[in-house]
């Protein structure tokens, strides 16, 4: 059962290596992480936080834009592209189910993002840890940022497949992917901010506000990494004031996990019903 999934995953990963996707993603993430690390070390002043912690939080606020974009660009044409090129038809005549096709691609793309994150961010983490940081380093903060970034990536890999199985041309898929990205990481929060500003009678309770944030995977990621831990709140400060009694770490992780499952399973559901 698992064999065709692994065969396809390996092939997707190799394709990522071949067409320089992996290299570009690693370089992009590493460059940004290093820049942030070097920039971040100057204005700390008297803050009681290590450089790595500051960098971790900066990376998280950057990742929320970058990781979904990378994931969507990796996947938006994964099904429709193969349909247009004509390779999908042949693939599906092989002993592989449509569910296995999606899972195989997911696994391959997941490996690409994981590699890019681990190398790109990991080298920065190790660099900062080894270049004389006097304050205690919060490795838990760093590693949970890394793993939730991977989860965030997974959400948008699934979203990419869902887009890819629903459309009938690559151009449409690209358009929807960009719109999705814009809406989730930018517009959603702007709208929310607008509503809060207009809502002078405070009819939106804190609990309701938290609930609204849970409906956006990017916000779940932000809450976890920028407000979820005390160390992060200390550095970021921005969302630290949010009453997060309802948004415990467990709730946030569960929400992210559900956000991974939802588009991924929907894409399989749609793909199975697709007439080729």
């Amino acid at each position: 059962m698992i064999r065709p999934v692994l065969v396809l995953a390996a092939s997707e990963f190799q394709e990522g290596l071949r067409n320089r996707w992996v290299v570009s993603a690693v370089l992009l993430l590493a460059t940004l992480a290093f820049s942030l690390a070097l920039l971040g070390s100057s204005p700390i002043g008297e803050t009681r936080a290590s450089t790595l912690n500051v960098t971790t939080v900066s990376l998280a606020s950057l990742s929320v834009y970058l990781i979904p974009l990378i994931a969507l660009m990796l996947t938006y044409d994964s099904i429709i592209g193969e349909r247009e090129r004509g390779t999908l038809l042949l693939l599906l005549t092989y002993p592989i189910t449509r569910g296995q096709v999606i899972l195989g691609k997911f696994l391959g793309h997941f490996a690409i993002i994981a590699l890019a994150l681990v190398i790109g961010y990991g080298t920065t983490g190790i660099y900062l840890a080894t270049t004389g940081d006097t304050l205690p380093i919060d490795w838990v903060l760093f590693l949970s940022m890394l793993s939730t970034s991977l989860m965030l990536g997974s959400v948008f890999l699934g979203a990419g497949y869902l887009i890819s199985v629903c459309v009938s041309s690559r151009a449409t898929a690209a358009g929807i992917a960009i719109s999705t990205w814009l809406f989730v990481v930018v517009i959603y929060d702007l709208l929310l901010l607008g509503v809060v500003l207009v809502d002078s009678e405070h009819s939106i309770s804190a609990d309701m506000f938290s609930l609204i944030l849970l409906f956006n995977p990017a916000d779940v990621y932000r809450l976890f990494n920028l407000a979820g831990s005390e160390a992060a709140s200390l550095v970021s400060g921005s969302l630290g004031t949010l009453d997060s009694s309802m948004l415990s770490t467990g709730v946030l992780i569960t929400a992210l996990a559900l956000w991974i499952a939802l588009p991924l399973l929907s894409s399989i559901w749609v793909f199975k019903r697709l007439e080729l």
């Binding site: 394709e15 090129r85 004509g86 390779t87 038809l89 042949l90 005549t93 092989y94 002993p95």
Partner: peptide, 14 residues
């Protein structure tokens, strides 16, 4: 299912 071989009309490969 694996006992079948298919050659599509327009054959495409990566």
């Amino acid at each position: 299912r694996d006992a079948i071989g298919f050659l599509p009309e327009i054959v495409a490969f990566p």
